[in-house]
Design a protein around this nucleic acid. Structure first.
Lengths: 397, 397
DNA sequence: CCTTTAGTTAGTACACTCAACTAATTATTC
DNA sequence: GAATAATTAGTTGAGTGTACTAACTAAAGG
């Protein structure tokens, strides 16, 4: 617990006003006062400050309801820019993003052959290029990376694919670019991204985002803020054992992890291995030709072999969701990643499975959905953590 | 988000000072100022207020380290009392508790034949009696009850054993006794109790308490405060399905829930059913004579049939813990309830199982322990939620 | 012309801070 | 061992910043 001062009060109320403007495209001072319960005086004073800082502007006059017309205020979307990085795919992607989560520029570069220092060099290269295109005040750099991350200290503890261990990425980037840096696990970033820039989330809501690609990870938002756990690896659900006996060996050393049965890679592997027993299947019969698009196509044509495989993944994902809901009773689960290409049917199968393995009551009110931001969620989440750190917005003027 | 005012600042700093005094048996104003980083002036002013309110008193003079002797302050343990109720056993237990969690009076009454309104009457009866013995200012009444609870609205949604449905207990008790009332699920209360009055917990820590008796429930403390989930039933882990195929029917309607294989009742049932196949076992061979003490005795003598049964429960509990740790990466798990009578061996078996079913890394730093407060944890937790609601402490004077 | 709403201005309240004070003790010096 | 300096504890009174109140102007509707 930290002591409270006037400054905290002020920062809090400024953040309150700013988030109210953020949530309402156009809004008057009086309306903000009604929503926040601050007095009109206080709101006017805060608005005057943030107009000076260029964050907000007067954009017109609203309609009167029996009195003077309100002056409408609006966020200046491009008054600050941020750089967001997504390191979790075959390509590194970097983007310039504004306060509304609109992407102003993107660079992506394949990383497949690189790892270790080379990968870091590629990262620098991308940021160097983006930096040259930054013509507005920069809030900072946000990074979403695979692997275990200690966000507080800004260290990537272990990113297997990139061969990074104990990489102090925050310090490296802050020294090189002299701007605030946040490093987040990719699934955690995606969760924050969906929550901040997706539709229909209230600020204090809890939600869990499950990111299913090669690996499987989750980002957990509790009462509106990211929960990272005592060791920073909350959400590492890919290695929960779901096949109790005879499970396949996982890269983590255990057998029967969720990743071995429900990831995109596991699905492809299983399809390639079993296709020879199902000559009637509409999947390509040459294992090397089986990839996710092929599986999707066969799935959509109703091929029963493929459907069985896909629904099996849904069964396991549903099991883990039932655990999550049983433990946390969080009523909003968002799914992301390649596997979401199987759409509604897959989603319903997951819901049925989750229902099957858990108490009816909590599950009835639980909504399982597919993420709204698609491939951008990680980049947007990495920057969202900057945009919602109002101290960054206030220190610049 | 709510607006911030001076009052919030003041309340916050008062709570900060008070919790500092709470955490240090005897402490001077100057030391509080150093710890909290408030100025000595501010600390003195706050102390003056809370001395007037009787919460704190000057208890002596400390040793000087080259200057004026500090005046030592101490919490007046009995300056406020609370009433705590534990409804989760065969007996209702009610107690008068002081600010240090010391029990000043206890009443317990068997509830076995009662349910519904009769049980409520019994509850009133206990509180009536306790109320007569309350000779200090009362902070309020805290209730730990089995079943699903909506704490915000103070409604017991469903307590099967007591046959309560949508019982607005908070309102009923507040109207009857005209004092603040909190109603919590029993496992949640126990978690708060352990955290507040147990040794070795830091205020902002996360922990999960797993309560294993007839049923199994968990209380989840995240960043120092109770997390109840969107529907108030976070921690309902007893009905996570752990036996995927051929599991026994659970009272919830599903098959293979954790409760059906790892609760005290499940253990007894299994022992009674299987004893006939193990004539060499040292357990009583008459099923009706098998109860928990008997099982404990056989377990401690090294009876292999009994050990197998007990370790099987540990295996399942470990599985669920592995899910919890995988999802939340919380490094402190506390176990409570009848089953803790199997001690270290059982605990180690749980740890081994959890290790087996989860990523090594997060689990290595996870500590699984047995609760420190024993049967009092629910009562103490129900009152802890009152004692740490500093607004209650401040509104009285 | 009255009422209502938006927004501003001037002054107030209050919680924390600062600087300077008193009080009491230890350490140092002669 | 007495005088002095230095340090620590705690208080006092003035000062500061932030939100609030009340009263104002401006502009619209009825």
């Amino acid at each position: 617990m930290e002591k409270a001062t006037r400054q905290h009060t002020k920062d809090h109320n400024r953040a309150l006003v700013l988030s109210t403007i953020f949530a309402n495209n156009q809004i008057s001072r009086a309306e903000i006062a009604r929503i926040t319960k601050l007095t009109r005086t206080t709101v006017s004073s805060i608005i005057s400050d943030i107009i000076t800082e260029g964050l907000v502007e007067e954009v017109g006059v609203g309609t009167s309801f029996g009195g003077k017309n309100p002056i409408l205020l609006s966020l200046v979307d491009d008054s600050r820019w941020m750089i967001g990085l997504d390191l979790s795919h075959n390509q590194f992607r970097g983007a310039i993003v504004n306060l509304r989560g609109e992407i102003r520029d993107v660079i992506s570069m394949p990383v497949e052959e690189y790892d270790g220092d080379e990968a870091l060099g590629l990262l620098y290269h991308i940021v160097d290029q983006l930096m040259q295109k930054v013509t507005r005040p920069l809030l900072g750099i946000g990074v979403g990376t695979p692997g275990l991350v200690n966000t507080q200290e800004g260290v990537i503890i272990n990113a297997v694919n990139l061969n990074w261990r104990n990489l102090p990425l925050t310090r490296l980037l802050e020294e090189r670019y002299n701007t605030p840096v946040y490093v987040l696990n990719d699934s955690q970033a995606a969760a924050i991204g969906e929550k901040t820039f997706g539709e229909g989330y209230s600020p204090e809501e809890s939600m869990v985002l499950i990111n299913i690609r090669r690996g499987i990870g989750a980002g957990i938002v509790i009462n509106g803020s990211l929960f990272q756990g005592d060791g920073g690896c909350a959400g590492e659900i890919g290695h929960i054992v779901v096949v109790k006996e005879g499970g396949e060996l996982c890269r983590c050393g255990n057998h029967g992890c969720l990743e071995t049965v429900a990831s995109a890679q596991a699905l492809i592997k299983k399809a390639r291995a079993d296709i020879k027993y199902f000559p009637e299947s509409s999947l390509p019969h040459e294992p090397n030709q089986i990839d996710l698009p092929a599986i999707k196509k066969a799935f959509n044509t109703g091929d029963s072999f493929t459907q069985k495989l896909v629904f099996d993944t849904a069964e396991y994902i549903g099991m883990v969701i039932s655990s999550i809901v049983g433990v946390l009773n969080i009523q909003k689960i968002v799914l992301l990643g390649d596997m979401t290409c199987f759409g509604e049917k897959w989603l319903n199968a997951i819901h049925d499975s989750a229902q099957k393995y858990s108490l009816q009551k909590p599950m009835l009110n639980t909504k399982i959905e597919i993420g709204q931001l698609g491939e951008n969620s990680i980049i947007l989440g990495a920057t969202a953590i900057l945009a919602t750190d109002y101290s960054l917005l206030f220190s610049q003027s």
